[in-house]
Design a protein around this nucleic acid. Structure first.
Lengths: 141, 141
DNA sequence: CGGCTTTCTGGAATGAGTCAAGATGAGAGC
DNA sequence: GCTCTCATCTTGACTCATTCCAGAAAGCCG
């Protein structure tokens, strides 16, 4: 996991100001993969004291726009964020407990980006969500 | 598009009672592909008079559970529903205007269902969303 | 250090979706 | 065809994630 100075560089590289809340949120996102907003707020507060939820939302939006974090929203769940960007991986979501795990795509770097007929759309990203059951939910059945 | 009697049969086959609201919602979903909940409510009312939003939500949930309709939720959008199920197609979403179009997958019937490492998950469905720009938004740039 | 701009705080508002209780009507048996 | 039973629909209030707003504070640059 990147260090605080790495995050600082990332922020500066994205032309964003380096502030305590931003570093805290960035650290929280990297330390809690697929965490929902509330978890990130909790984590940010744990390392910073008090942060308004508004600041976290704002920071997350800025970071998402800058491409430093990725926002994922499985159906039926609240928005979640993750720090791994640019490596084109996808997600498995457990139907039972909502757990999310990373999976690399089988095909390569930009898989499935070749739709049979693209309807004239200019496709620039393919997002894949696998639905299934996680190991612990499978066994507890 | 299926007729009302087809919908009746589908409902009965799913052990659901055939009611006016259900037929109206089913018709609305088939007549308005990828429509959001509000649109479906409007469409159902157009063919039925007055329907409570609660009934529509309930019907949509029942139909989704029965597999008669499919629920899709692109990030940043409200829930949408479609009547085409079982043919394993995917969607292109326009980042600009939010338009949704169907695409058949290039690989075949159950594409991309082979994740590189499934983390022990039992995967039963792969959902693919292509992000891009629709023809009209591309040209108007 | 000073000024400008962006960001953070705190609170209130929005809006999709859900819950609960009672009324209604579809389906089954007589 | 009639009646009974239970799933389904109506109404209305409510939850909760997310957003909007205005003012205060802090970071960045010269």
């Amino acid at each position: 996991m990147p260090s605080t100075s790495d995050f600082e560089q990332s922020l500066r590289a994205a032309a964003l100001r380096v502030t305590r809340p931003r570093l805290a949120v960035l650290t929280a996102v990297h330390g809690h993969p697929h965490a929902d907003t509330d978890t990130i707020i909790q984590a940010a507060r744990a390392g910073l004291g008090e942060v308004s939820h508004q600041a976290v939302y704002d920071v997350l939006r800025a970071l998402t726009a800058a491409g430093l974090v990725r926002r994922i929203e499985p159906s039926g769940s609240v928005a979640r964020y993750e720090g791994r960007t640019g490596d084109n991986h996808h997600h498995v979501v457990c139907r039972s407990c909502g757990a999310i795990a990373d999976v690399d795509c089988a095909v390569g770097d930009t898989p499935c980006l070749t739709a049979a007929n693209d309807q004239g759309f200019t496709i620039d990203e393919a997002e894949v969500v696998y639905w299934g059951t996680c190991p612990s939910c499978s066994t507890s059945t």
